[in-house]
């Protein structure tokens, strides 16, 4: 597998979600590594607006033809938006996983992101996994 792209300025979870933090707003997606290991993504199961998500718990799933992977929320809070484009075109996550976010969350406790990795740490984490 070729090197996975990692973006500076985002935070990363061990289950390969990325988070962009802006005050108490968190935008969540999956990393390039995650989309590569899934292969062609055919469906994204996302929560609805106003649903609650909790840190470390499932909030949805992504499916390829022969695999399924649960999505774990890196933060706790309320869903403020879901990326409806993914309903029609889940393959967007393969094309560009960083510009195609999955959900936006208003965080209950923004300090929770403190446990996430920065780009350098995530790169080291991926290297250690290989």
């Amino acid at each position: 597998m070729t090197m996975s792209k990692i973006i500076e300025g985002l935070l990363y979870s061990e289950s390969h979600e990325w988070v962009k933090v802006d005050g108490d707003a968190a935008t969540i997606g999956i990393t390039d590594f995650a989309q590569k290991s899934m292969g062609n993504i055919v469906y994204v199961d996302m929560p609805e607006e106003d649903d609650e998500v909790s840190c470390g718990e499932e909030f949805g799933a992504i499916e390829s033809v022969k695999a399924a992977s649960d999505l774990y929320s890196p933060v706790s809070g309320t869903v403020t938006d879901r990326n409806g484009d993914l309903d029609d075109e889940p393959g967007l996550l393969n094309r560009d996983p960083y510009s195609n976010w999955i959900i936006k969350v208003k965080m209950d406790d923004p300090s929770e992101v403190g446990t996430l990795m920065d780009a350098a740490a995530y790169e080291a984490f991926l290297a250690a996994q290989a």
Binding site: V42, Y43, E63, S64, V65, K66, A67, A68, D70
Partner: peptide, 13 residues
């Protein structure tokens, strides 16, 4: 199709 729902992929889920 839609096999990601099924036992051979999702196992206990």
């Amino acid at each position: 199709t839609l096999q990601a729902r099924e036992q051979h992929i999702r196992r206990e889920k």
